[in-house]
Amino acid sequence: MATQGQTPGARVRNTVFSALVYAFLYAPIAVIVLFSFNTSRRNIVFEGFTLDWYGVMAGNTQLIDSLVNTLIVASCSTLLSVIIGSLAAIGMYRYRFRGRSAIDALLYIPVVIPEVVLGIALLSVFSFVNMPLGLLSMIIAHATFSIPFVVFTVRARLSGFDSSTEEAAMDLGANRLQVFRRITVPLIAPGIGAGAMLAFTLSIDDIIISFFTTGATSMTFPLKVMEMVRSGVSPDVYALSTIIILVTFAVVVTTQAVRYRREKGQ
């Protein structure tokens, strides 16, 4: 659909509406950034500017550890889900076999089922087999809910894919492994990238699954925050969040700029 035919009035209305939605999405983020520079410990009134909380944060090993844990869990579960999910998407796209729809059904479950159900189900089974709760159990749990998302994104990419390109490669003397490496993977790379991005995002933002599958020594950043909510979140957490916001912001802006330049260049 194109922008043509929009009256100036409609355009203004649309801009105002979008601005309000983004204001809604970013208002609390603005508060976080603002209070990370607040001299008061209570996040209620802005009293004066300070960078102290960034120092406090740097010295708060528990907090830093929780962030490191979050990143470890997110990276490992993303890697796992990308490998398993991409292979599955390709295999299920290319072959028709018995049990295909059963796998499909299993993949839909984590997407639609409430996270709390998945969380307690995994917890129950982990405890049944006496698996210690910690980083590993969290990585496995996160990979479990990420795999379907990777499968679906890669599959969406594959559906616009001419399977005769693979045949052509084989026809020209490439064996199956070469076809996979030189044709299939490069062609679905954007889908894999999007799937990985999604898996990573879901993992670092996850609270509920982590809440059930974490152990005493493997606190992630979200769980750390959850723990602090009762006693009040201290501004050093805001400082850390501000840094995360700035980094992700920078990443998104650069990738978009690069993209824009490349599109313009072509």
Binding site: A27, P28, A30, V31, I44, D205, I207, V229, I244
Partner: peptide, 22 residues
């Protein structure tokens, strides 16, 4: 789209906590 998803990189709990200040 990017700016719709961007907030998700900051934890939901913290952002909800931000709402409490508002």
């Amino acid at each position: 789209m990017a700016f719709l998803m961007l907030p998700f990189w900051t934890n939901s709990l913290i952002r909800l906590y931000g709402w409490r200040s508002i």
